[in-house]
Simulated assay, not measured.
Amino acid sequence: MVLEVWRKIKKKEIAPIYLLYGTEAFLINETKQLLLDHILEEEEKDFNFSAYDLEETSVDLALEDAETFPFLGEKKVVFLHNPVFLTAEKSKEKVEHNLAKLEAYLKEPAPYTVMVISAPYEKLDERKKITKELKRNAELVEAKKLGEHDLKNWVKERAKNNGLEFDADAIEQLLALSGTNMFMLASEVDKLSLYAAQQKRIDSSLVEKLVARTLEQNIFTLIERVVQRRLDEALRIYYDLLKQNEEPIKILALLSGQFRLIYQVKELSRRGYGQQQIAGYLRIHPFRVKLALGQAGSFTDEELAHLMGLLAEADYQMKTGGMNKSLLIEMLLFRLKR
Rank of each mutant, 00 (worst) to 15 (best):
K250R: 15
M323Q: 15
E216W: 02
V116F: 05
P70N: 02
E142V: 14
K76L: 02
S205K: 15
E41V: 12
G280F: 06
L310M: 07
L311R: 01
E303I: 07
A100Q: 13
Y238W: 11
L86D: 02
Y239P: 08
L177Y: 13
N161G: 14
D60W: 00
Y281I: 15
K144D: 10
I17F: 01
I28E: 07
K94Q: 09
Y316S: 14
V78W: 00
E313S: 11
I39F: 02
H306Y: 15
A197P: 10
G22W: 02
S193Y: 08
Y239D: 14
E142H: 15
A253I: 08
T131P: 06
D190P: 06
Y281E: 15
E133K: 13
T180G: 10
E108H: 13
L124Y: 02
A62D: 00
F49K: 10
E303L: 07
F299R: 06
Q258Y: 10
L134S: 03
G280L: 07
N29F: 11
M1R: 12
K144E: 11
S204W: 07
L333P: 06
K337Q: 15
E126Q: 13
Q295R: 05
A104S: 15
L210M: 06
G280T: 06
V78Q: 01
N181H: 11
L146Q: 05
L328T: 05
V59P: 00
M1S: 15
L293N: 05
R288P: 04
Q258V: 08
R201S: 11
P120S: 07
G309L: 01
A104V: 08
G22S: 02
D301T: 12
L63Q: 00
L333M: 13
A279S: 04
I223Y: 03
Y105E: 00
E157V: 09
G272K: 08
A279H: 03
L86C: 01
D37F: 11
G322Q: 12
D167T: 03
A305S: 15
G322D: 07
E108T: 11
R225P: 07
D46P: 09
E247R: 14
N137P: 09
F85Y: 03
R229P: 06
M308W: 09
V114R: 00
S187F: 05
G272T: 07
D125H: 02
K12P: 07
L194H: 07
N48M: 01
K32S: 10
L102I: 01
L177G: 04
N48V: 00
I249H: 09
L80F: 00
Y281A: 14
A197I: 15
K94F: 04
